[in-house]
Simulated scan of single mutants.
Amino acid sequence: MTKNVGGIDRTLRILIGLALIAGAATNTIGMWGYLGVVPLLTGLIGWCPPYAIFGFNTCSLKK
């Protein structure tokens, strides 16, 4: 699995994921907020399946 999510993209995914999960945990935005797990995990792992399918890469590392 080659990383395809770069620095700013990863940071935004992690922050958005945490915000959605926090909103769901405090019952501010409802249960849909737990979908924040998806951007959180893709940000932590550094790999996004749709990016791989469509050939996107925001990672500056060249392998």
Score class of each variant (00 low, 15 high):
residue 17 G to K: 05
residue 18 L to T: 05
residue 39 P to I: 02
residue 32 W to N: 13
residue 1 M to W: 13
residue 47 W to D: 04
residue 46 G to Y: 03
residue 53 I to S: 03
residue 38 V to R: 01
residue 6 G to N: 05
residue 20 L to I: 01
residue 47 W to E: 02
residue 42 T to H: 08
residue 49 P to L: 15
residue 62 K to W: 07
residue 35 L to G: 15
residue 13 R to S: 10
residue 18 L to A: 11
residue 28 T to I: 14
residue 25 A to G: 07
residue 35 L to C: 14
residue 34 Y to L: 10
residue 28 T to R: 15
residue 45 I to P: 05
residue 18 L to G: 02
residue 41 L to V: 13
residue 23 G to N: 01
residue 36 G to V: 01
residue 3 K to V: 05
residue 17 G to F: 06
residue 10 R to P: 00
residue 60 S to E: 13
residue 12 L to M: 13
residue 3 K to H: 12
residue 28 T to H: 12
residue 36 G to S: 01
residue 56 F to A: 08
residue 59 C to P: 01
residue 40 L to N: 06
residue 13 R to I: 10
residue 34 Y to M: 05
residue 28 T to E: 12
residue 28 T to Q: 15
residue 51 Y to Q: 10
residue 52 A to N: 12
residue 35 L to K: 09
residue 9 D to I: 03
residue 30 G to K: 09
residue 38 V to M: 12
residue 17 G to V: 00
residue 37 V to F: 14
residue 5 V to D: 03
residue 22 A to S: 15
residue 20 L to F: 11
residue 16 I to Q: 05
residue 9 D to V: 00
residue 32 W to E: 13
residue 20 L to S: 02
residue 29 I to P: 08
residue 6 G to F: 00
residue 21 I to N: 02
residue 50 P to C: 05
residue 57 N to I: 00
residue 14 I to G: 07
residue 34 Y to W: 15
residue 6 G to Y: 01
residue 40 L to S: 02
residue 50 P to G: 07
residue 48 C to N: 01
residue 16 I to E: 06
residue 1 M to R: 12
residue 34 Y to I: 07
residue 46 G to A: 06
residue 33 G to K: 03
